[in-house]
Design a protein around this nucleic acid. Structure first.
Lengths: 342, 342
DNA sequence: GAAACTTCCGAAATGGTTTTCGGATCATGT
DNA sequence: ACATGATCCGAAAACCATTTCGGAAGTTTC
């Protein structure tokens, strides 16, 4: 047997409420929305009727009238959701829960699908669009024919006229390096990931700059390959054979760092006493489960999402676009792989 | 300087198109929507006008009229997004890209926030709601006062009158066990996670059943604690000291399995030659980066999302609710931790 | 008692699209 | 020339909430 009234045919409309309360639509609207042109007695009558019918105003109709839908599109190509979820949460924070809702569209790296989603979002009259990429390389702009503000998060647009918000990878490389230096390390090398990633290059730049400031040079070349744990292991083995005296390894990702830690353990090196290791991304589940726990750089993605949302707001309020790429500060999270537990 | 026309004040409406083409709204609508009560010449004139103005129909207005918004709400408490993203992708597949868009709302484990989001979704007149939890324990039902179909995915509702779709953990435990048995293992133990998780209990049930069918018993008790790599390491050390002759370890999660693999390596046990290890979740980045790569059980979350979406469809089409908990088959992914590489 | 004012309520327009139904036009058949 | 039919188009209603503006009461003031 079907449940009682599982999906009642129609939701109550303002008209229903007005009829039940014995007033006109206009009065009902004013009573419910707390406008002051209505007598207290009438108001309470209307409100009671609304509750009785469990009336909720139809946002569709409201949006149509207001010209604002109170929705935002999040267009992502990030297959795993590692970046997009924190960014979404940040955006939700900025918009205020319940005020604005977010359409999440996954283009899965496909430009056609992205166009498809974009069109669908515009048809739904979203008030703004946040485009999220999975790497910090510039990505093709959606173009300037879009009738709502667009902000690019994590992956910047290749058009400087667009608004982009990205983590500051140069600074990240510098901070990681300065931290190792502050713990007394002097023979530092760098195992990074895919060299075609702007993030890899930027971090290396920051790293070299920090070393130069301290009058030091990188031990060996930056080792590029991919972002995997496998590579972290291979790289560490190679590194230790070529430069047995290194005392600090800066890794391009936490996954790489995990591989490096594995090999250091196999080779009998103590971390952090003999060699300090630092990762990147602060992927908690990896960083807190390693032996020892992994110091890492956190990109503050939630703050990044909040900022992206605020840029949308500003554009909606008619502020000057402030176009270009805005970099967001990153954060050092210190754990046992660089500082011994007391 | 501001860009040229960054956000043109108004998008073209059907009225604009009609005026430009010199026809009425009704005719313009029919021409664009391919209805056959319009002369070919008129139609092409309208279509050209529409393209000239780059007209796109306002979905808000369309939805208002149709009584269907073409949107679905995905209400999640999954903080990390590990479950919700595949489920979202599956739902998108089922709905057809561009036909339906998904509002993603993260309640962050907060019942108040969940209510808030739910209300917002209903006000936006979503056509259905998918509730995603981060564990397979029954969760509180949203209740039966909701005017649209609701499907619970991953975490079932505690109300049997609701529609729930969950992965088949019992079967998962059985499949994992049968796989180890098929590789000749006979002394099998089980390191699982938090015993308050229904998933942990279910997997253990399936495991014991498969062993019983083969006339075997579990070596030692099921070891419960939490889902971490740390626990995997502690458990493995304990296990090997108590039962040095075990030849198969079934783990409650890939993270636990990673910890187990670490300790086996430390103790000089060869995997899979001496001991086979199998994980759970098929978290690719963990499973493919371990030494050796990790055999695991995949919950087919994308298919689960697809099914959840189809349940919504069915309810919308007025089909019988088919309420209760539906379990979805899981899948064995074989890698090097159970079968030696040839 | 009439004018001025306040207080509250309702009719109607608004937003953009779809759909129904009646009307107009034109060609065909007789 | 008139009826019949076919073909195309347009006026208007519908969806639902908000807002403006005018009007109907009721109250105060001289």
């Amino acid at each position: 047997m079907a449940r009682a009234e599982p999906h009642p045919g129609k939701a109550a409309t303002l008209g229903d409420v007005a009829r039940l309360a014995g007033v006109s639509l206009a009065t009902a609207s004013k009573a419910i929305n707390g406008r002051d042109e209505v007598a207290p007695a009438t108001r309470s009558r209307v409100i009671q009727a609304a509750e009785q019918l469990s009336f909720t105003p139809n946002q569709l109709a409201r949006s149509l009238l207001a010209g604002r839908s109170g929705t935002v599109g999040l267009l992502t190509g990030d297959l795993e959701g590692r970046f997009v979820i924190p960014i979404l949460m940040g955006a939700e924070d900025a918009f205020g829960a319940g005020q604005v809702n977010v359409f999440l569209c996954d283009a899965r790296g496909d430009a056609i699908r992205e166009q498809h989603h974009l069109k669908a979002l515009l048809n739904r009259r979203v008030d703004g669009i946040i485009v999220v990429g999975d790497r910090t390389n510039p990505r093709p702009s959606l173009g300037d024919g879009i009738p709502v503000p667009v902000v690019y998060a994590y992956a910047p647009s290749d058009d400087p006229a667009d608004v982009s918000v990205v983590p500051d990878n140069i600074s990240g490389g510098r901070i990681a390096t300065e931290h190792l230096l502050s713990t007394g390390r002097r023979r530092i090398c760098h195992v990074s990931g895919d060299p075609t990633y702007a993030a890899a290059q930027d971090r290396a730049v920051g790293l070299r700059a920090a070393l130069a400031t301290a009058g030091l040079e990188l031990v060996g070349d930056v080792m590029f390959s991919d972002w995997s744990e496998h590579w972290g292991r291979s790289a560490a083995a190679l590194l230790l054979s070529q430069h047995p005296d290194i005392d600090g390894i800066i890794c391009g990702s936490d996954l790489i760092a995990r591989g490096v830690l594995d090999i250091l353990r196999d080779l009998g090196k103590r971390v952090p006493e003999d060699v300090a290791v630092i990762g990147y991304d602060n992927w908690e589940v990896l960083a807190t489960n390693s032996r020892p726990e992994l110091t890492s750089i956190d990109a503050n993605l939630q703050a990044l999402g909040r900022t992206a949302a605020m840029r949308i707001f500003e554009a909606l309020d008619g502020a000057a676009p402030a176009s270009g790429v805005q970099t967001m500060p990153v954060r050092l999270v210190i754990r046992g792989s660089t500082i011994p537990r007391r």
